[in-house]
């Protein structure tokens, strides 16, 4: 049975509908990321689970028990804030022990748990400092420890890496994922960074306009996006508008279609395009820009109409990249990996 279930949750702020019929089930111990552009409702959904907001409709269940009507302090749900919200007037030890103290646990037990938590986040020597005296990464670990000592059923994290600089981010993401696996806690992340979502999650829920547009493992979503929006948001993709007639696309390189006739979108990852010099069967255009990235070269190919195609090709040592302006033809390398969706690229 899923540990956390969100059923048809909707929420409006005034006339603005922020969440529309969101549904999600999260298994015990798994990590789900709510991913989407700003304003898609991901933080609102997270705040609804924590109880900071009351949804207009729908239910939220933890271990089968409806918690929708409970105030935030009666929900067994940890929340890590974007700015960590460590109490500035309390030391690191007092911050971590805050929840236990509120629960009136014996002093010795609090001391033991706080020390364990400090050890877990490798900050034992920092216990008597104030939050301001710690770096962003350290503060984040304290914020997580402060929630984890209470052994909540679910841990919610609102863009926890936003305040960290780019170099620190990836290593903290891996650290955090390891920590979560060690503790075995069900976690929900909110982020707008697709790389972060890919690194951290067992499953990703792509949100858009208050709805969950697609839910799946990172690779499922990467390989089988169900909408052009998802295709574009996870990884990079060429979205080529096509028309589907009698089971085939009308594109220069026709693709067999399993979707009904009408307008369609051909989703091609840049690494699945190959380029040949001169005219030929495929999308003809001229090289607009070439970026050598070491192991690969990225080309931008202007076709005269629509958005330029992006292709990423392995670089062969000793072979000079194509110069801008060269006439080329782009083809899909592996037709099986091309995705055809019905509907135009940007509805």
């Amino acid at each position: 049975m899923s540990q956390l279930v969100i059923e048809n949750v909707s929420k409006a702020f005034g006339t603005q509908q922020v969440l529309r019929d969101c549904g999600l089930a999260v298994d015990k111990g798994s990590v789900v990321t709510l991913l989407g552009p700003s304003g898609c409702g991901k933080t609102t959904l997270l705040r609804s689970i924590a109880g900071f907001l009351v949804p207009d409709a729908g239910r939220i269940l933890v271990n089968g028990q409806d918690i929708s009507h409970l105030p935030p302090n009666r929900r067994d749900v940890g929340y890590v804030f974007q700015n960590y919200a460590l109490f500035p007037h309390l030391t690191i030890r007092e911050n971590i022990g805050y929840g236990l103290k509120i629960r009136r646990k014996p002093k010795a037990l609090i001391r033991g748990k706080v020390e364990d938590a400090l050890g877990l986040i490798a900050l034992t020597d920092f216990g008597d400092r104030y939050p301001k005296q710690l770096s962003g990464g350290q503060q984040q670990r304290v914020a997580i420890a402060r929630s984890l000592v209470l052994e909540p059923e679910v841990l919610l994290l609102d863009e926890p890496f936003n305040a960290l600089d780019a170099q620190l981010r990836l290593s903290m993401q891996i650290e955090l994922r390891k920590l979560i696996d060690r503790v075995g806690i069900t976690s929900i992340f909110v982020t707008h960074d697709q790389q972060e979502a890919m690194t951290l999650s067992d499953r990703i829920a792509i949100m858009r306009g208050g709805r969950i547009e697609q839910l799946g493992t990172p690779l499922e979503i990467y390989d089988h996006p169900q909408t052009p929006f998802v295709a574009d948001f996870i990884g990079r993709a060429n979205l080529i508008p096509v028309a589907i007639r009698s089971g085939r696309t009308d594109s220069p390189q026709p693709i067999a279609a399993a979707v009904p006739d009408g307008p369609g979108t051909l989703v091609v990852r840049p690494e699945n395009l190959t380029i040949a010099e001169g005219p030929g069967p495929g999308w003809e255009g001229s090289v607009g820009f070439a970026t050598a990235l070491g192991a690969t070269i990225e080309y931008e190919i202007d076709r005269g109409v629509g958005e330029p195609l992006r292709a990423i090709l392995p670089r062969q040592p000793g072979v000079a990249p194509l110069t801008p302006g060269s006439r080329v033809t782009a083809r899909i390398r592996d037709e099986a990996a091309a995705i055809l969706l019905s509907g135009s690229p940007r509805p």
């Binding site: 900071f52 105030p71 302090n73 940890g78 700015n83 919200a85 500035p88 509120i102 929630s147 209470l150």
Partner: peptide, 13 residues
């Protein structure tokens, strides 16, 4: 910043 109060509620206070 109300988030400090939300954090306190979230921790059970």
């Amino acid at each position: 910043d109300r988030r400090f109060e939300e954090a306190s509620l979230n921790l059970g206070a």
